[in-house]
């Protein structure tokens, strides 16, 4: 058994440069959580639930099936990039207003998918919203209130 190889990694998370040393097979999800980006959730670790969704160069995808080393040099955005306590992002305001969450565990991924959707389609129809979030599983809400919240932001309500 030889020593495992480690590789240097440098990427930008929420505008901040993060460096580290990782094994070849490490996922971006594990790398982020190991670096205390705990807002990125591990629900299934196989790309089936969407809880670990982040934006990579503007596109929403599952970080559990993304090789950390492939994120080398890229811009990663997690939920923490959206808003702050004093200045919630309109999507965050809408999720609170429309009660688009219960346990909140799918919320970090759901919000990032919604963000990516609105970035490319600012006024999405309900069906487009349902399509966009179809890779983000929610077991609490039945989705209606989530779709309501995203739709409201699309309408410019918040």
């Amino acid at each position: 058994m030889g020593e495992k190889e480690y590789y240097n990694i440098k990427l930008t998370v929420n505008g901040k440069v993060v460096t580290g040393s990782v094994r070849a097979e490490i996922s971006l999800l594990d790398f982020l959580r190991d670096n205390n980006y705990i807002e990125v959730k591990k629900g299934c670790d196989k790309g089936d639930c969407g809880a670990c969704t982040v934006l990579i160069d503007g596109k929403a995808t599952v970080s559990c099936l993304t090789s950390a080393l492939q994120a080398q040099g890229k811009n990663i955005y997690t939920l923490k990039s959206l808003g702050s306590w004093d200045k919630l992002h309109p999507l965050q305001k809408a999720f609170v207003k429309y009660e688009a969450l219960q346990c909140g565990f799918c919320t970090p991924g759901m919000l990032m998918t919604a963000k990516a959707l609105l970035d490319t389609n600012p006024h999405p129809a309900r069906e487009s919203i349902k399509e966009a979030i179809s890779g983000n599983l929610c077991r609490c809400t039945g989705y209606r209130k989530i779709v309501d919240a995203i739709e409201a932001v699309g309408r410019g309500e918040l």
């Binding site: 939920l79 609170v96 909140g104 565990f105």
Partner: peptide, 16 residues
Amino acid sequence: TPGLDEKDKVLGNVIY
């Protein structure tokens, strides 16, 4: 009534 923890949940502040 507004949620007690919803703001922290949408901000990703909750320590699960």
